[in-house]
Amino acid sequence: MKHLIHALALLLALAPAPTFALGAEEMFADPAQEARAREIGRQLRCLKCRNQSIFDSNAGLAKDLRVVVRERMEAGDTDQQILDYVHDRFGDYVLLKPPVNTNTYALWIAPFVLVLLGAGGAVVYMRQRPQPKPATELTDADREEARRILRGEKT
């Protein structure tokens, strides 16, 4: 029976229902507590939204996760424990800031590599750029012709 409830709960939670999310019952009266909940919530992804955190979404699932965050807070968990709790249940996908592991080494290294590549590119370019040739002085005749060209006269 319990299994069924969970199965149904999952199924029905995924069914589209235009519920407006933030209910009164899920808020802390204490602003500091509430701010902390917000801070944690901003790290968690609403699983069926665009890249929105559970605090930036109207979806039902986001609401459920907000409730979970608040319940864990009331149970006295630390921020990290709460994130771990949600992470354990929903996997990496729920964390807006991906964890560092074999899957994401490349992701986390990429910014450094890109900036280094840019810097390297700049250095290489500066070294290879055309060096000032000994200025080939134009003859007076050449200058005269150039001026004429620039004045728009037909050569």
Binding site: R45, S53, Y93, P98, N103, T104, L107, A110
Partner: peptide, 20 residues
């Protein structure tokens, strides 16, 4: 692109969001 590529290669889903 990372999450898309990762999902294609390993099947794992991750999110890259504002904090990153």
């Amino acid at each position: 692109m990372y999450p898309l590529v990762l999902e294609v290669i390993t099947g794992d889903k991750i999110s890259v969001g504002a904090p990153y």
